[in-house]
Design a protein around this nucleic acid. Structure first.
Lengths: 220, 220
DNA sequence: TGCAACAAAATTGGCGCCAATAATTTCGCC
DNA sequence: GGCGAAATTATTGGCGCCAATTTTGTTGCA
């Protein structure tokens, strides 16, 4: 090809933003905690300017909150918003089922089985963050077959936002085990090419560790 | 109250970002067009720094695209992405139906009737941008009763992104009239408290002016 | 001892300068 | 006259400084 379209979205800023976002995901910074620019400079070996840009980006993404003259802090999600996020996640993640069932191949199913097994192992062995990351990998890989990149973006944006809530996911070991079991149920639905069932499982899976009632808006 | 929680997200930057976003919506800048910082400084009477910040914010929101050392330009949405945006919009906007029907009151219905009438008038009289803004107002007001602010945010983010496509909405006068009629059908469903029908109408309404086939992922 | 006012230290944030890069024009050569 | 290279111009973008603001610490007074 004579000309290649440049899709260069990555400056140092975007990279740093993702690093900070990951740190927040891994609970290195807890909801409500202030992110001091000087600390971030050292921690990530970046200039002050880059730190500020990255923080701005995360503020736009609603991962963190910006308070003028006070700084940036990890967003605290109130209960109402948390329920809305969950409700919206259910709407979106349910909608991936059809595409996934239609497009997934055997190799991918095998890989998903492996990830499910990895999660099972982490349930007893691993740390909370390990469990979380493996769980994320499972869903990320599964959703990547839905055939709609925009939909995926949206889902992961919402999932990140939900981290800011006080609600503890997998608040008990039983709920963790329940999540584990549900992964296998999803695999069964997937192998049976049952999109309807997969959608239902995804919906119940999302409400897993959250001890709150159903959400104001639900899919048809 | 002793302490008021500050939710001050608005610096000049955010304001400017919205102004630029609106200008893009109104087609003052067309998809693919470069946004030169110097021009924006003058046009909006802002400092160079604020312009850059605002552009960065819009880039994160995917309203515009950033190419290092070249600048910022209005995002061009390719056909595949456009279809994905449409598909995702259908998923999300359909999901508002239930909440709207449950929560809307007579006063709001009257106001919506008025907006629908305004649109009818604009179909023959108004300019393309007027039609577009009234249409936006109609849907924005309707969706505001869905009871899920997160869901709303998501919808309007997607709608803005869709502007970057080459696809002309309301490519013919007939399609414009069709949209007009559909507004009244929605009102009828709303008055009959028929959420299911409203959802269906919303879905078909979205695929209005787009001469492309259905999307890869559809709601159940 | 508790509280309020004041002072000192720490932190954020606006902004302008200039180097780096790309676009455009000019000039020289074939 | 056409083509390519070098010079000129235009535009972007990194970064550090310092003022504005907030927080912390201290002192004095009831």
């Amino acid at each position: 090809m004579t000309e290649r379209k440049r899709k260069n979205t990555n400056t140092r800023r975007a990279v740093l933003a993702n690093e900070i976002a990951q740190a927040i995901r891994l609970r290195a910074f807890r909801p409500g905690e202030w992110l001091r620019q000087i600390d971030l400079e050292e921690r990530f070996q970046a200039t002050r300017f880059d730190v500020r840009s990255a923080l701005d980006e995360l503020a736009v993404r609603k991962t963190i909150e910006h308070v003028p003259n006070r700084g940036y802090r990890v967003a605290e999600v109130d209960l109402k918003t948390y329920e809305e996020i969950l409700a919206t996640r259910i709407i979106l993640e349910r909608a991936t089922a059809e595409g996934i069932v239609a497009q997934i191949d055997d190799a991918a199913i095998a890989r998903l089985d492996a990830l499910a097994a990895q999660f099972s192992a982490a349930v007893t062995t691993g740390s909370r963050t390990e469990q979380s990351e493996i769980n994320r990998a499972f869903h990320q890989f599964m959703y990547s077959f839905c055939g709609n990149a925009v939909l995926e973006e949206m889902i992961w944006g919402l999932r990140d936002r939900g981290r800011g809530s006080q609600i503890t996911v997998w608040s008990s070991h039983e709920l963790l085990q329940k999540s584990d079991r549900e992964h296998y149920e999803m695999m069964a639905a997937l192998k049976a090419r049952d999109a309807e069932r997969l959608a239902t499982l995804i919906a119940t899976h999302i409400i897993k560790g959250a001890p709150v009632g159903p959400a104001p808006v639900e899919p048809s």
